[in-house]
Amino acid sequence: MQAVGNLTNKLFHKQLRTGSLALQVGPYTYSIQSDLPIVAEGIRALYRDFVLVDPQNFIDYKISIRHGGLLQRLRRQTQFYFDGTRPFAPIPIGQAYAFLEWGMNWCVSLHANEYLKLHAAVVSSERGAIIMPGVPGSGKSTLCAALGLRGWRILSDEHAMLIPGTVNVVPLCRPVSLKNESIEVIQQFSAEAILGPTSQKTHKGRVAHMKADLHADSHNASPLPAAWMIFPRFCPNERQQVTLRRRSDSFILAAYHSFNYSLLCESGFESMEKLINSVACFDLVYHDLNWAVHTVNQLVGHPDNE
C-alpha cells in the first residue's frame, strides 16, 4: 500500500490539482482537490503516512478548496466545495488549510449516522480508550496532542464514533487542531511535534494542526473499546484536580457534546446508556500539561513515557 509520502513531488501536486488524490481516513475515503500551495504544503506535512486509495474506488467525501471565480481570486478568497456545492461563505486564502481540516470534520459531523458521534478527542493505550468530550477552548485537543506525544495512540481529535450498542470506538485519526497559545504550548511540550501551516485570524483565532499518526497502529481501522470518559477543562486560575463525575450528569453532558445523539432517537439513548454504564467518568481541571498527562496516566495505570 502506497502512502502520500511515497509520491514524488510532481505526482503529488498533479494528483492534488486534478482531484485524483484519495486518502483513507479511518473508515472513510476522502478525495481532495486543490490548487492552493498552502493546502499542498499542509497535506504533504501532516498526511504523508496516510494510505492512498485508487480514485476509481468508492469515494465517501469528495472535497475541494479552490477559487470560486475571478472576483474571489482578486479578493484573495477561496471556497470550500462538497458534492459540488458550497456549504460555507468564501474564506481568505491564508485560512485555506484550517478550512480544509474543518471541512473534512464537517463531512463526518453532518452525514455519518451509522455511529453515535460525540464531539470528543479519543486516545488509547493497551488498557483501553479514553473519550474526552469538550467544547472548543476546553483544552481537549491540547491534552490529546500531549498524550499522543507521550506514547498514547490518537484515535481522533474531533469525533468519538461509537458503534451503537457497544462501547467500541472506530478510529478516525486526522491531524489535531491547535488554537492560539496551545500552538506554542505543544511546541514547548515536545520537540517532536510536527505542525502544518498556521492560519491567522480565523473565527477561532490562530490555528495550526499537528501530525497525529505518531503510533505504529495509527492507521489500523479496527474498533477499540472505551474504558474511560474524561471531561477536560483548561483553567489557569483553578486548582488542578481530577474528580469522579456522576453517571446521570455524564449522560446529559455527553449527549450535549454529541453531534447526533438526538437524531438517533431511541437507539441513541440505548447507546449512550451502554456507554455511560461501561466507562468511568471524570472531570479534569488543569493548566499544566505535564501534570495533566501524568494524572491521566495514573488514573488508568499507564506508565509515564518521556
Binding site: 456549504p87 474564506i91 478550512f99 459531523s109 453532518l110 473565527h203 437524531l263
Partner: peptide, 16 residues
C-alpha cells in the same frame, strides 16, 4: 471575511 456560517453548520444544533 469571517466564515461565520461554519460553527452553526458543524455544531450540535444542526443535528439536534
Amino acid at each position: 471575511g469571517a466564515p461565520l456560517g461554519l460553527d452553526n453548520k458543524t455544531g450540535k444544533t444542526a443535528n439536534q
